[in-house]
Nucleic acid binder design. Structure first.
Lengths: 249, 249
DNA sequence: TCTATAAATGGCACTGTGCCATTATATATT
DNA sequence: AATATATAATGGCACAGTGCCATTTATAGA
């Protein structure tokens, strides 16, 4: 296959001989979430090359069969390359594979989802991208048209995030080092798109034993609030009586 | 690559030029569960070809890039080919990909897990297998040595099954057309490896509204028990107060 | 008729939750 | 200095689902 640039996607696909392989293409995509400015956002990049050249897409790429040891390495590598974040919350979400999702032919992508605090992130377009940015996610969608089936992937991934937030402490990974319970509750509410009861939220999150007091207070102009940090008990899923009505006002 | 049979796996691998491709191999594996004889079992097949020729493995194979439209098609096709079952409960579990899990080089497998009733299954070794059978799963393991990383996959998949059983109605897919609540509870207990309280089980499963009375009774020698069937409300997850202590005696 | 066994129900204390009111602690205003 | 205002944090209680154990119901067999 030639390595020169192609004027159109059609030219590119003509030169790309899918039949040279009888095995699907494999890639890793990462849905990177953060919350900032009171809004859930996801990281998207502008594709440098064909196919879907110039379109926005999720952060992803091909497995480096020489350097990546496992799938998670590919996801970590991509995330670090684009954001500089070395220790994100990273969880395998789902794999999508079909004949039609990529114009080059049968392809499979394993999608990870990541949660990172908005602070201290240094975006860099890097390899394969001409631009990169946060885009607000409303109702599982971003306003930009996404390449391939990435809009579908984002939608399902956001759905998963929303459902897990109901009974897990995942949102702590979206917080900075130190935060108040009100700030944490606010992030929960932003993701769920619904208000929660103060008292019940405090009871559940404190009972889950994933936070510890810093001893410091945050003065916000009114009565100061206790600052908390994660205490290292990461894997706590805390459950509610009825997932349907849980905490919804 | 030659198509003749190879005497040893070494011979096979020598002829197999991994560097001919810069993309990983992709396959689909299926962990097929059933409960019979009071035991959780999974379907394993004896591999006909290299690599791992003659070893037992999970049911799986390569994507047929010409006929399969999506990943789920591959899983369905394999399951039907081996068991004849057309409408299993089938759910994507997880993908495993690494440089080392297959001696041929970088490979990714997307694993599905299936639940089927033990009755009416016609096992057939079929393509790529010289034998096929049910094997008891105890503590996430079968007594046969499994090829590749399949023992690891089985272990994680069994773990997932066990955890989901606590708060879902998944085991109904392991039951025959008609069954009593005691039989269903028994299947729950087999999977979880722990006894449950009669009354609480009845309350929860009936409240979940996934079963309907058939009107018929099953006479078991003692007081006859009501026979139930699924009513079509498949997707009901019913939650418990405390996932840790849930129903454990 | 009595006994054994399994199916199914009754009853109640316990616990987490939703809900709303109240108290505590800061700043801004007069 | 006293008051108003806003947010943080707690108190209190009814309600619902659960765990637990006792009781009742229905059948076969002795």
């Amino acid at each position: 296959m030639k390595k020169e640039p192609y004027k159109t996607e059609k030219d590119f696909l003509k030169a790309y001989d899918a039949n040279a392989f009888d095995r699907p293409n494999v890639s890793v995509d990462t849905v990177i979430f953060t919350v900032s400015g009171g809004v859930l956002k996801t990281l998207i990049m502008k594709r440098e090359n064909h196919p879907a050249q110039g379109q926005w897409s999720l952060v992803g790429g091909f497995i480096d069969v020489h350097n990546d040891q496992e799938l998670l390495d590919t996801a970590k590598r991509k995330l670090k390359e684009k954001t500089g974040v070395k220790t994100p919350y990273l969880e395998q979400f789902c794999s999508f594979g079909s004949k039609s999702r990529d114009p080059r032919g049968w392809s499979v992508t394993t999608v990870y989802f990541a949660l990172i605090p908005s602070e201290g992130v240094e975006l860099e377009a890097g390899q394969g991208a001409t631009d990169i940015k946060w885009s607000a996610v409303t109702d599982g969608k971003v306003k930009e048209k996404l390449a391939f089936d990435h809009a579908h992937i984002l939608e399902e991934c956001t759905e998963r995030l929303k459902s897990k937030v109901l009974y897990t402490s995942l949102p702590v990974h979206l917080m900075p080092e130190e935060f108040t319970l009100a700030e944490l509750q606010n992030v929960y509410e932003i993701i769920m798109g619904a208000a929660m009861d103060h008292k019940s939220f405090r009871r559940r999150i404190l009972r889950a034993d994933i936070l510890e007091e810093t001893g410091k207070m945050k003065d916000t102009g009114r009565r100061p609030a206790m600052l908390y940090r994660r205490n290292g008990n990461e894997n706590t899923h805390f459950f509610v009586r009825n997932i349907e009505s849980a905490q919804m006002k």
